[in-house]
């Protein structure tokens, strides 16, 4: 049994008549990087803010390392840190003072706070902006200040709400590296994101939330295998394939769908890697000449579409 860092049970959150999260059950394990995926408005931020004790559950409970967010909030806050989706700072603040204040609140002495803040600001290219007002910073720079808080804090459970949403490519890769480093140094990480590349690069496991409930949970490759007919075997053939051969192929390969156009046969199957050989075997026996074979795995995009309602075929066109 893996140690559980966050246990979410029957969690419901309502805002007036809006049900933001509707009965969520989820365990996040100690030491993992957990990717939290879902379309806009699906309840990601609401869930993360509840883990961070900013919101209170309308129903159910959330525990962080065994402490309840409703009854033992003070204990939870000692373990959790969150970088918000919208950067939080006074407009009249300058990044340096804000981060030093943050560092001291999370336990650094003034001397250490100054040191660590400078290090992190330099790494993120923020040092030159240290004395500007927050209102003068660009969107991406504000976002960097927000994530800097967690790189400074290094909490046991670090929550990043769409950390790289506004960052340039170089910074994105740097931030991913830093998040992985934090994880190696012992922090459990939750990353909410809409960016499939980010989810795939970072996450040990991914949870997909849609309209306030969990739709899928597993490692990125497990999730891909969950899509029925998610793999596509593309075979370029010479000559004609008749209906009966097609039907035979479909039956033996357990294909969800078969398309043949312009000499390219597309077979939609599960676990395509295990079926390529069989497919070639059948075709050779039927004397059909194969010119090339390729297999495409579904992307995490496909997984996302699949579990959040959009149909794979529709999206593929």
């Amino acid at each position: 049994m893996r140690k559980v860092a966050v246990s979410i049970r029957g969690f419901v959150k309502r805002f007036g008549s809006v049900v933001a999260v509707d009965g969520l059950n989820l365990d996040i394990f100690d030491g993992e990087i957990f990717g939290f995926l879902g379309p806009n408005g699906s309840g990601k931020s609401t869930t993360l803010l509840t883990i961070a004790t900013v919101y209170k559950p309308s129903k159910g409970d959330v525990e962080v390392y065994g402490f309840s967010v409703t009854r033992e909030g003070d204990a939870v806050r000692k373990l959790v840190g969150i970088a918000f989706q919208e950067p939080k700072a006074l407009w009249v603040d300058n990044p340096y003072e804000l981060l030093v204040w943050h560092a001291m609140v999370v336990g650094y002495s003034l001397t250490d706070a100054r040191k660590v803040v400078r290090e992190v600001m330099e790494e993120l290219g923020l040092w030159e902006h240290r004395n500007k007002l927050f209102s003068e910073l660009s969107g991406g720079t504000r976002k960097k200040v927000e994530i800097a808080k967690l790189f400074i804090q290094k909490p046991k459970l670090a929550i990043f709400d769409e950390p790289t949403a506004q960052l340039d490519v170089t910074t994105k890769h740097f931030v991913w590296g830093k998040i992985r480093d934090m994880n190696k140094e012992g922090s459990t990480i939750i990353v909410a994101t809409n960016d499939m590349v980010e989810a795939e690069r970072l996450s040990d496991r991914v949870g997909i939330i849609y309209r306030g409930t969990l739709r899928a949970l597993g490692s990125p490759s497990e999730l891909k295998d969950m899509i029925p007919g998610g793999d596509i075997i593309e075979i370029r053939v010479e000559g004609f394939i008749n209906e009966s051969i097609l039907r035979k192929l479909g039956d033996i390969l357990e294909a969800r769908r078969l398309d043949l156009s312009n000499g390219v046969l597309k077979v939609y199957v599960n676990k395509g890697e295990e079926r390529i050989a069989t497919a070639l075997d059948i075709l050779t026996r039927e004397n059909i000449k194969v010119r090339s074979v390729a297999m495409k795995e579904p992307s995490l995009d496909d997984v996302f579409f699949y579990f959040t309602g959009a149909k794979l075929e529709e999206v593929r066109g």
């Binding site: 900013v54 939080k88 006074l90 407009w91």
Partner: peptide
């Protein structure tokens, strides 16, 4: 103003007793 700008959210998440 801090409530509206979410700064109270930030403070509520910090490791400080309420």
């Amino acid at each position: 103003e801090e409530l509206e700008d979410g700064l109270i959210d930030y403070q509520l998440s910090l490791p400080i007793e309420r």
